[in-house]
Simulated assay, not measured.
Amino acid sequence: MDTKLVCFSCNKELTFTGLIGRREECPHCRADVHVCKNCEHYDSKVYNECRETQADVVREKDRANFCDYFSPRKGGPGTIDKAAALRAAAEALFKKS
């Protein structure tokens, strides 16, 4: 089964057959692929920048890691941040003074 994701560094679509290994690199910009910023659990607005509560703390979000919860993110790098920004704007709009 092919796995597709968009590189967090160069925003180009990547296709991998099977699991994404820890040492995989983007063929376009040579950035590591098995990183937090390419994971569906990555969210810069939550504690430890990860929505997976059982994952170990990873300090360098753009470097290869051994996280067992890594799951390739669908869509571009700004997908999560845009949703969080819209949510924050809506909460601010309906916030009581």
Rank of each mutant, 00 (worst) to 15 (best):
L14E: 12
K82G: 05
N65I: 02
A31P: 02
C36Q: 04
R87T: 14
I80C: 07
N65V: 00
R51M: 09
D81H: 09
P72Y: 11
G76I: 09
E49W: 13
G75Q: 08
K37C: 01
N65C: 01
S9A: 15
C29P: 06
C39T: 01
V6F: 08
K82D: 05
A55N: 00
A55T: 00
T79H: 12
N48V: 03
A90F: 06
R87P: 03
E40N: 03
G21Q: 12
Y47A: 14
Y42N: 03
N38T: 07
D56K: 07
T17S: 08
F16C: 07
D56L: 10
H41V: 02
R30D: 14
V35W: 03
I20E: 02
A85D: 14
G18P: 13
Y47D: 11
G78H: 12
K74D: 01
I80F: 07
L14C: 13
A64C: 02
A88K: 11
E13S: 08
A55Q: 03
V35Q: 02
Q54G: 04
K37L: 04
E24D: 13
C10P: 12
V46Q: 00
C10I: 13
N48C: 10
K61P: 09
R63S: 14
R87N: 11
A85Q: 13
C10A: 14
A84K: 15
E52F: 05
G21N: 13
T17K: 08
N11S: 15
G21Y: 02
R22V: 15
D56I: 10
L19Q: 14
R87Y: 04
Y42L: 00
E49F: 14
V33Q: 02
G75F: 05
G21A: 10
F8K: 06
A84P: 05
E49N: 15
R51H: 02
G18H: 12
P27G: 12
V46R: 04
K37R: 11
C29F: 14
E25R: 03
I20G: 07
K74V: 10
T53Q: 07
K45D: 01
D56H: 08
R51Q: 06
S44R: 12
A90I: 03
A85G: 14
T53W: 13
I80W: 03
A83M: 08
C29W: 13
P72T: 13
K74R: 11
R59C: 06
S71A: 12
D68A: 09
H41P: 01
E91F: 10
I20D: 03
C67N: 06
R23M: 12
A31Y: 15
K12D: 07
G18D: 14
D62I: 13
Y42F: 05
K12M: 06
A31G: 06
V6Y: 09
F8T: 02
E91H: 10
C50Y: 00
K61E: 09
V46G: 01
F8D: 04
E24K: 08
A31W: 15
